[in-house]
């Protein structure tokens, strides 16, 4: 475990906790895309299929349980919580899951390292994670008005991706030189999706004005 990987995991954890705490304390999920949250829950469920079979470390198991628990809790809050669900803006969050799910599934069936159920599911989760943020970004563009916590959530997620790329670069030079095309390309695409958001995030930060995305 290197410093980039640890920092990446911590920003990832922080992003999820920021979102969960926002929803839990202010009892509102305005500005949060349920579609993105459902996709993340599916990402974790398909990636951690072997959570109770393959043991890597105590750290890994605990983190996996936290990601699974938090992502399904967020979905539960938005769909089922008596108060929270009223703040969900269904009419704005219209991105179709299937447009992302189907291509990822097809791609995972075609491009994978091993054609086994576990491996295809793992690859599917990598592809899906790369694009799962799209409904959230579309929702932000559409509503334009972003509260601080939602902005921080997306910023932390982007930071996690950027740190993971540094982690792969570090690992490439310090460990065996195996080229992980699937993970790298999906990871780079995922990080690029945040570039536009980052631009406006830093602009608003520099000028200390409220974050607003252009329509």
């Amino acid at each position: 475990m290197n410093i980039f990987r640890l920092a990446g995991d911590m920003t990832h954890l922080a992003s999820v906790l920021v979102l969960l705490l926002k929803i839990h304390t202010i009892k509102s999920c305005s500005g949060v895309s349920l579609k993105t949250q459902e996709l993340y829950a599916l990402v974790f469920a398909t990636r951690y299929l072997d959570i109770f079979v393959t043991y890597v470390s105590f750290y890994n198991t605990v983190m996996k349980l936290i990601f699974l628990g938090s992502s399904f809790s967020i979905v539960w809050y938005i769909r089922r919580h008596r108060v929270v669900r009223r703040s969900y803006d269904k009419d704005q969050d219209t991105f179709r899951h299937l447009f992302l799910l189907l291509p990822c599934l097809v791609l995972a069936l075609v491009i994978n390292e091993k054609f086994t159920f576990k491996e295809v599911m793992w690859t599917f989760s990598i592809y899906l994670e790369a694009v799962a943020i799209l409904p959230q970004l579309v929702l932000l563009q559409r509503t334009r008005n972003i509260d601080n916590l939602t902005g921080q959530y997306v910023f932390l997620l982007g930071a996690y991706r950027a740190l993971y790329i540094l982690n792969w670069i570090y690992r490439y030079f310090t460990e065996e030189h195996y080229v992980h095309w699937i993970t790298w390309i999906a990871g780079i695409i995922q990080t690029l999706l945040y570039a536009d958001f980052f631009y406006y995030y830093f602009q608003s930060w520099k000028n200390s004005v409220k974050l607003e995305l252009p329509a």
Binding site: F67, Y164, N167, R171, Y178, H180
Partner: peptide, 10 residues
């Protein structure tokens, strides 16, 4: 070379 070496990530 371990093809699974990134599987220890989250």
């Amino acid at each position: 070379i371990d093809a699974d070496s990134l599987k220890d990530e989250l």
